[in-house]
């Protein structure tokens, strides 16, 4: 089992070396009661497979969608999720917190 964020980076390297497209999403800022701390990571491949977590399940689906976009364009992006976000009702954090996630492609 890959238990922590550093082990997940080992998987990211393995995936990329195996020829898969890979993106890494990292929690860079949190406000209020966020489920996972700054530095938490999600690794995503071009087929939408993922390892790790950035929110304990609340917004992973949306982050995977952003990651596929980043894999396609190659340009990194910073995305925010939380109760103040207009998409809160679809993919918001049920705990009422807010997080910023940096998504980048492994090139």
């Amino acid at each position: 089992m890959r238990a922590n964020d550093e082990d997940i980076l080992a998987s990211a390297e393995e995936w990329r070396r195996a020829g898969r497209d890979v993106a890494i999403a990292t929690v860079v800022e949190t406000w209020g009661s966020a489920p996972r701390p700054v530095g938490s990571r999600l690794v995503i491949d071009g087929d939408g497979n993922f390892l790790g977590s950035v929110s304990g399940g609340c917004v992973e689906g949306a982050v995977v969608t952003e990651a596929l976009d980043v894999i396609g364009s190659g340009a990194p992006k910073l995305v925010s999720f939380g109760v103040a976000d207009e998409t809160a009702w679809q993919v918001g954090l049920s705990c009422g917190g807010r997080i910023s996630v940096f998504v980048e492609k492994v090139a």
Partner: peptide, 24 residues
Amino acid sequence: MKLATLTALNETRRARRAALLVTS
């Protein structure tokens, strides 16, 4: 993240050394 950076990060961890990554 460049694959070279990712590789270096993983190697540092296997060698039980701390590392800091600064990303714009």
